[in-house]
Design a protein around this nucleic acid. Structure first.
Length: 506
RNA sequence: GCCCCGGUAGUGUAGUCCGGCCCAGCACUACGGGCUCUCGCCCCGUCGACCCGGGUUCAAAUCCCGGCCGGGGCACCA
């Protein structure tokens, strides 16, 4: 019994569950973002899910931009998405931009019209909506193939005003699934008013998502669609139906639930509001969970994988605690980040007759590859004000990794005296910065953007000052550190003798 | 309103298909302890859950029915 329990607990653990109908080497996946927003952690998770399955089955993956709504897509997002995917560590074999496949969509449109699967509908939007609700077919449905073909080409040519006609699928107006009730496959969009960032003002007639993605699913030979549940289960029937009409085999659809992050704003619209109101500094603000925000914050991409493996691809709504992200990140950073001494709200102390004038310290207690630095000492040090606060005259404490000191006098400058080199068990140990090697530190601490009551926290950036050892100048801007006894931090910039950093997390 | 889907400790999950090996496993958090020249990492321990009500059965987290709660969808968005 004991053994069985053990087997059960160790057997799982790593990796995502198997996909149905998946064979090594034959899986075809696609990342299908729509370039109308900056990618956030949710997209990162989606990318990673696909990436993990691509690896698991040694499959093929496409990056496919579903950019068939010129009213929404914008140039800047294509690169933001590519960058996000690269950061997360996703690989793709080929990139497809849907808007460059318009002739294919038209060709398939004509084919389906010829097969009487599509028809031109000239009812207005409201009528279409009502008819679908009441399961009623409209008279446009009986138009001849020839006439449909002619109208289709005239729509492509821009001869119809926007809104005056659409192309619909001859579905099933009596279906329980409302999506199957003759959905719109093409609609008119004025290219003069909203030119497309990739193809400009060339096209009037644009496929809808269901049509576009189904065509491309078939062309690409997609075997598995892994996406979040926001697409809805009703679309699966439609898209499968369309793919069959085109002579393809529908992929396996796997839709996992969306998730929330506690203390973070994940809705694109709300992030946009924060950016526009100037509450955050931009889409890459360190308080945001956009991919660029996380990257800026100092979250390492491995965390995305950790999260996916932890959450899996279940249908239940998951709430990710931001603390979880910190925990995962801390583990990665703990192994790789150099340690540095910092004193916040620094206070100067003087050690009289300091017997040591130089010391070499490792950047990491166990990671040899990070090397070491040598600090020269004059007897004058900075320590954190917070530490000094609780000191009384006569107290003995230790300057960490250096020697013990006894408090002689607490005045403007705190005077200490050397009190031995040997480590005394249970002594307090304070980190220190030699005055001769101290640079000013501007330390920003990000707090949650949301107050416990749900309102926006307008003061979510706390600024603290201190000093940091000048060893930091040996590192590049963007490097990640552990400031001992303070937290993990990222170097943002250096200006003259001032170092700018922010706290990634404790 | 109409369609789906889901509800296992504070959180995330395993188990549910094919009822017994589950008086429910793992991880994070919290708490306690150990290690450590960091308030970090690591190690050990403790608390803690099958939404509710019926039914089927020798036996139900697992099957059936009803309820409650949560999520998604029902666009000329993706």
């Amino acid at each position: 019994m004991e053994e069985k329990k053990k087997a059960r607990s160790t057997e799982k653990k790593k990796g995502l569950p198997d996909l149905p109908n998946a064979q090594i080497g034959k899986v075809v996946l696609r990342y299908a973002p729509d370039p109308s927003k900056y990618p956030h952690i949710g997209h990162a998770l989606n990318y990673m899910i696909n990436e993990l399955y691509r690896e698991k089955y040694q499959g093929k993956a496409f990056l496919r931009f579903d950019d068939t709504n010129p009213q929404k897509v914008a140039r800047e997002f294509y690169d933001a998405i590519r960058d996000g995917m690269k950061w997360v560590g996703c690989k793709w074999d080929e990139e497809i931009i849907a808007s460059t496949k318009m002739e294919l969509f038209y060709e398939k449109g004509r084919m389906l019209i010829s097969n009487s699967d599509l028809y031109v509908c000239q009812c207005d939007q409201e009528t279409i909506r009502k008819n679908r609700e009441q399961m009623m077919e409209c008279s446009c449905r009986v138009r001849s193939v020839e006439e449909n073909l002619e109208l289709f080409d005239r729509m492509i040519a821009g001869e119809f005003p926007v809104g005056s006609a659409v192309i619909r699928l001859k579905g099933d107006m009596r279906s329980k699934n409302a999506v199957m009730r003759d959905p719109v496959m093409f609609r008119l969009i004025d290219p003069q008013k909203t030119p497309h960032p990739i193809v400009g003002d060339k096209y009037w007639l644009w496929p809808t998502y269901d049509f576009e993605s189904s065509i491309l699913e078939k062309e690409l030979g997609t075997t598995h669609v892994l996406r979040s549940a926001e697409f809805g289960t009703m679309r699966v029937e439609l898209q499968s139906y369309l793919i069959k009409l085109l002579g393809g085999v529908p992929p396996v659809f796997h839709q996992y639930s969306r998730f929330r992050i506690t203390g973070a704003i994940t809705k694109g619209r709300e992030i946009r509001e924060l950016v526009e109101k100037g509450i955050v500094l931009g889409w890459d603000d360190i308080r945001l969970v956009t991919i660029s925000g996380l990257k800026n914050r100092g979250i390492v991409p491995e965390v995305v994988k950790d999260l996916v493996l932890e959450i899996g691809i279940t249908a239940t709504n998951a709430t990710i605690d931001w603390k979880k992200i910190e925990t995962f990140n801390r583990r990665h950073l703990d192994a790789s980040a150099p340690r540095l001494f910092t004193a916040l709200d620094s206070v100067k102390v003087r050690v009289e007759e300091s017997p040591v004038d130089q010391i070499t310290l490792r950047y990491h207690p166990t990671n040899d590859s990070l090397g070491e630095r040598t600090l020269s000492l004059t007897g004058d040090f900075f320590v954190s004000g917070h530490d000094v606060f609780s000191l009384s005259e006569g107290d003995v404490f230790r300057l960490k990794d250096l020697f013990n000191v006894r408090v002689v006098e607490i005045a403007d400058v705190i005077t200490l005296e050397y009190a031995g080199k040997e480590l005394i068990p249970n002594t307090r140990k304070l980190q220190w910065v030699p005055v001769s090697q101290a640079l000013s530190l501007e330390y920003t601490i990000p707090h949650s953007l949301i107050n416990p009551d749900g309102s926006i926290n307008e003061n979510s950036l706390e600024l603290r000052k201190g000093v940091i050892e000048d060893s930091i100048t040996a590192f590049e801007v963007g490097s990640l550190f552990q400031l001992e006894r303070i937290g993990f931090a990222k170097l943002n910039k250096r200006r003259d003798r001032v170092i700018y950093m922010h706290e990634i997390h404790k």
